[in-house]
Design a binder for these strands. Structure first.
Lengths: 137, 137
DNA sequence: TTAGGATATTCGATTATTCGAATATGGTAT
DNA sequence: ATACCATATTCGAATAATCGAATATCCTAA
């Protein structure tokens, strides 16, 4: 059942990645170590905010820094993870569509087929349902 | 400057991954297609909640479903992405620690070295600063 | 057509994230 | 010591994510 602890840890790690600014920071660090001031020039965010994001990345152990006088040179402390992750999300894979039949074959289950529909369910605006009948809760 | 659009899209994709239940769902789907009822047995979440997470995964185009009668068989519509991502976060890379000197070498910058400290800045509870002096804002 | 099963969605409340503003901190040079 | 630069942190307000409860919907069997 996909170990709950593992999932929780992995989710937390991924959360650290899941912000545009933080991704941009990581991307910049792939190119080489940088201090906060460098990043200010490269990113659309203010110093305080960048420091906040760096704190999150540090907490996730994705980055660390080496102090150089008054400067803190940030670097990736798990460069392979970061590089591979960035590559992975960059890459784009064609989106599959499977028919109920294909699925059935693949499924270790006993339900019976139904040849008609297969989903179109994607992003574009879901049709709203009827507003809910108000009831005491 | 690590394209802002790209970062935003990538961040959104990663957000879809960044939840323990959603990760667990994806993990289960790597093993093969499943309908919601199957997942209810496998995951520590209620039906409504699972459906909510599936909606998010669908929106991110990570999953889709094939209707089989009253059932909806969910499957990965970008299986490689999902598998690789899960593998990646599962794998654990040793955490690097670089000295200011190493960094300096690697840096296309003109600051001067400082041989002493390197960071210990990680997770465990940050020391609190002095509470801020209250001022009208 | 009605009932029941499987799944989705809406609402609302709770909790978590995010960001700017205002400092606090630490280092270094004076 | 003081001042200044680079960086962190706190607070607070605004926004977003999360989850249960209560339905709504769709499909099929009776």
């Amino acid at each position: 059942m996909a170990d709950q602890d593992t999932s929780k840890d992995a989710a937390e790690l991924l959360k650290a990645f899941s912000h545009p600014i933080r991704l941009a920071i990581l991307q910049e660090l792939v190119a080489g170590p940088k201090c906060v001031t460098d990043m200010e020039d490269l990113l659309p965010a203010r110093q305080a905010n960048i420091s906040q994001h760096l704190a999150i990345l540090r907490y996730a152990r994705l980055v660390d820094y080496a102090q150089d006088g008054a400067l803190r040179c940030y670097y990736l402390c798990r460069p392979n993870l970061v590089r591979d992750l960035l590559t992975l999300v960059g890459r784009d894979e064609p989106v599959l569509r499977r028919t109920p039949e294909e699925i059935k074959t693949d499924k270790e289950r006993l339900a019976k087929a139904k040849l008609s529909s297969y989903s179109n369910a994607v992003a574009p605006a879901r049709p709203k349902l009827k507003p809910r009948a108000k009831v005491r809760r």
